[in-house]
Design a protein around this nucleic acid. Sequence first.
DNA 1: TTTCTTACA
DNA 2: TGTAAGTA
Length: 130
Amino acid sequence: MSEKELRRSMSVFPIGTVMKLTDLSARQIRYYEEQDLIVPMRNEGNRRMYSLTNIDVLLEIKDYLSDGINMAGVKRIYKLQESKEKNREQEMTKMMTDDDVRKILHDEFLAVSGLNTKKPHLFLDQNRIG
DNA sequence: TTTCTTACA
DNA sequence: TGTAAGTA
């Protein structure tokens, strides 16, 4: 996660500030949380603290709602994005793994055939195996 | 003062 | 969704 993303994910705004920034009522903001559209952090006093990312989502929700989409529809949109991101990450992980295996087999082949002119990969791959 | 939870003439 | 009550 980049520093920019870390900053955007820092929960530092109390609900009152979020109300002004999004023009939503506290009731609505808490309701969207109940619908699992956002997951604000809690401070020592059990107060909800929101991040810029949370605020972005709330603004997006407002846009969808103003476009005539109901809560069920909004929830479907985020559910879909969530599953797609998981699949993408899983695919990426699988690709990385396959690539590692390929490199390892390639290096082993070079070593056995006595043509290993580049050993650098062996260190990295062995660490990944362990 | 602000926010939280719960509940509803 | 709004709003009231009683807290923290």
